[in-house]
Computed example of a mutant assay.
Amino acid sequence: MSGDELRLWAAARADELPGTTVDQPFGPEVDVYRVRERMFMAMSSTGRTSVTLKSAPEDAKALRETFEAIVPGYHMNKRHWITLQADGTLEQDLVEELVTEAYRLVVAKLPRAQRPVDPDLFLSASRADPDRP
């Protein structure tokens, strides 16, 4: 997987998620994906392409131990964020699943009235039916 593929996979999945917006508060080289103004993903297009995602601390640790291409979140809280590097070893399904989980973690912290989906049902539905976001 090239850097372009990593960006394409992550962006395509994020764009499918309800209530997602994209902005560039850090400049044109970083796309920030948010749900209700809360960031769940950032993608860098300068230098070595990378995707930084929100992650549960225990999942982040396990992912870093399992995949060389997953490192602590670049310029983020290392416990709650991971960075995916484009080294050719990550599969599209994994990238899409990690984007979905980052989104779900942020949605779960929103006040109930602001949630575009129920985070518990959303996760189980997306795993049960691969054609659903």
Rank of each mutant, 00 (worst) to 15 (best):
R64S: 06
L110W: 13
A69E: 10
E16V: 01
F67M: 00
Q92L: 04
L17P: 05
R115A: 06
M76S: 05
D93H: 15
R79D: 14
A86T: 08
T52K: 08
I70C: 08
K78H: 10
N77S: 06
M76V: 02
P133Y: 06
V106Q: 12
A125Q: 10
D15C: 09
D59L: 13
A113Q: 12
D87C: 01
L94P: 03
A56M: 11
A14V: 01
S2K: 14
T83F: 13
N77V: 06
S55I: 01
A113I: 13
G27T: 03
T52N: 11
D87V: 01
S45I: 09
L8C: 12
N77Y: 08
D120W: 07
T20F: 03
M1Y: 11
K78D: 08
L123R: 13
V35C: 03
Y33G: 02
M39L: 14
R13S: 06
P111R: 12
R48G: 08
Q114K: 15
E65G: 04
A60D: 03
A69C: 04
S50V: 11
A11M: 06
A12E: 15
D129H: 07
A10D: 07
P25T: 02
A108Y: 13
T66S: 10
D131C: 00
E101A: 12
P57D: 05
L84Y: 03
V99E: 07
M41H: 08
L8Y: 14
E16F: 00
T89M: 01
S126Y: 11
E5H: 15
T89W: 01
L8M: 13
P133D: 11
D93F: 06
L90P: 02
R36P: 00
L63Y: 04
K109T: 14
K109C: 04
Y103H: 09
S50K: 13
A125N: 07
L94H: 05
D118V: 00
A14N: 05
V95P: 06
A42T: 14
R112P: 03
D59N: 13
E97Q: 15
P116E: 08
D87S: 08
L110C: 07
Q92A: 14
P130M: 03
E68A: 15
G73R: 13
R132I: 00
A14L: 09
T89Q: 12
G3A: 09
I70G: 09
E65L: 08
H80A: 10
K78E: 08
V106E: 11
A42I: 06
L123Y: 07
E96H: 04
T52P: 03
E97Y: 05
D15P: 02
T49F: 12
L53I: 01
D120I: 11
I70N: 10
R132A: 10
A108M: 11
V22F: 05
Y103E: 06
M1Q: 13
L63T: 01
R104I: 12
F67K: 00
L90T: 01
Y103G: 04
E58I: 04
A113C: 00
A56E: 15
E29Y: 10
V117P: 04
L90K: 05
L105W: 06
S124M: 11
P57N: 04
E91A: 14
M43Y: 05
R132P: 02
P133R: 09
